[in-house]
Simulated assay, not measured.
Amino acid sequence: MNNFTYFNPTKVHFGKGQIATLKQEIAPNSRVLITYGGGSIKKNGVYDQVIDALKDCTVFEFSGIEPNPHYETLIKAVELAKKEKVDLILAVGGGSVIDGSKFIAAGACYDGDYWDIITTGGNCVKKALPLGCVLTLPATGSEMNRNSVVTRAATQDKLSFGSDLVRPTFSILDPETTYSLPARQIANGAVDSFVHIMEQYMTYPVNAKVSDRFAESLLLNILEDGPVALEKPNDYEVRANLMWTATMALNGTLRNGVPTDWSTHAIGHELTALFSLDHAQTLAIVMPSLWRYKKEQKKGKLLQYANRVLNITSGSEDEQIELAIQKTEEFFALMGNPTTLSAYGLDESAIPAVKQKLTEHGMLAIGEHGDITPDDVVEILKLAL
């Protein structure tokens, strides 16, 4: 097991009716900027609950944060936060709203070019406004981590930054807020969470039993409850387990003591920025083909996944691995995320642009061994045609 340092100070209020705890977390007379997306929170009652809890505060609003939040949109919110001298950002939504709000929190305390926050990976962030979250879509784990992904639409760049200064001070997770979500968003969230776990699991064995067993239990939760969530959208226990699984998938716990990969995300981000695919769609395209391409390097963990999670124990090692990959592809397809480029209207002509963007972004040696080059990515995507 590898050495690690673990730190996560985010307070979580989980369960029914927990939006009311905003009164405990935000002092009266605070100046609060509420950020959200397309306005669904005004249709499902979440907005009303938030406003009621903040009735003793001065509230400002910024709406319209996109899926894969756009830099061009977020800088408008930064200027609003500065103009109104807000004390706290309250993100009400899913991972995109929270990611965008992390950028807003950092930008509101930054006097340079806001894009510096992205290009430095967050290293230029020395101060940020406090951030709280009301999660309405379980997927990214952003409600309990230091990471953010922002897209600059004008240049088709989707890049990340991280800073402990933008970790949410608190997050509220009420599974009932997910009942009204479209099936596509719930399905995408399940796939996203699944791949987050795999980026920290599907590398090579280091005898990290705690992280491995924890990851395997979370994978089983998603495999079991993901399809049920689509069949029974108002099943509280199913939604509760999926929501907490998504948070635990990327709050820093699973990475303790293990190597991590993140090459699927690096490639997927380029596909999203270039071709406007859903984040989960790109992950479903890339991961199975990457596993096949790197089968020998990942063999130990692929077999462990096959045996422990999918209960595949018969056949040769290569047969077990291929069946595990096929069953993973079947799960992604069941959740509405086919695993080929052609399923989304893309062919081999799309691949050179991905290689070019990875090169531009310095993604020249990715993966747990740092041995996946842009040329390797070309071959991986050819396997996904």
Rank of each mutant, 00 (worst) to 15 (best):
N8T: 00
P9V: 02
P9A: 14
Q18G: 02
I19C: 14
N29I: 01
S40K: 11
K42M: 09
N44A: 07
Q49Y: 08
A53W: 08
A53Q: 11
D56H: 13
D56S: 15
D56M: 12
S63T: 12
P67G: 07
N68H: 08
H70A: 10
Y71W: 07
E72R: 05
T73K: 05
K76M: 03
K82V: 05
D87P: 04
G93M: 06
S96M: 10
S101K: 09
A106L: 12
Y110C: 12
D111E: 15
I118A: 14
T119A: 06
T120L: 10
N123S: 14
C124L: 08
C124G: 09
V125F: 07
A128I: 04
L131E: 02
T136E: 03
A139M: 08
T140M: 09
T140N: 08
G141E: 03
S142Y: 04
S142M: 05
E143G: 09
M144K: 05
T151E: 13
T151R: 13
T151Q: 05
A154E: 14
L159K: 13
L159N: 10
S163I: 10
R167C: 12
P168D: 03
L173C: 05
P175L: 06
E176N: 01
Q185F: 10
I186K: 13
V191N: 09
V191G: 02
F194W: 06
H196V: 02
M198D: 01
M198W: 03
E199R: 00
Q200Y: 00
Y201F: 15
M202G: 00
V210H: 02
I222W: 07
E224R: 15
V228D: 06
V228L: 15
D235A: 13
Y236G: 13
N241D: 15
A249G: 14
R255Y: 05
T260W: 00
W262I: 13
T264W: 03
L271Y: 11
T272G: 15
F275E: 10
D278W: 06
L283I: 04
I285P: 05
P288F: 02
W291P: 01
Y293V: 03
Q297N: 10
N307M: 14
L310P: 15
N311I: 09
I312H: 14
S314E: 15
S316I: 14
E319H: 09
L323T: 14
A324M: 13
Q326F: 10
L334Q: 13
G336R: 05
N337H: 11
T340R: 13
G345P: 08
P352M: 07
A353N: 11
A353M: 12
K355Y: 04
E360Y: 01
E360F: 05
M363T: 00
L364W: 00
E368A: 13
G370K: 11
T373C: 03
T373S: 13
D375I: 00
E379L: 05
L385R: 01
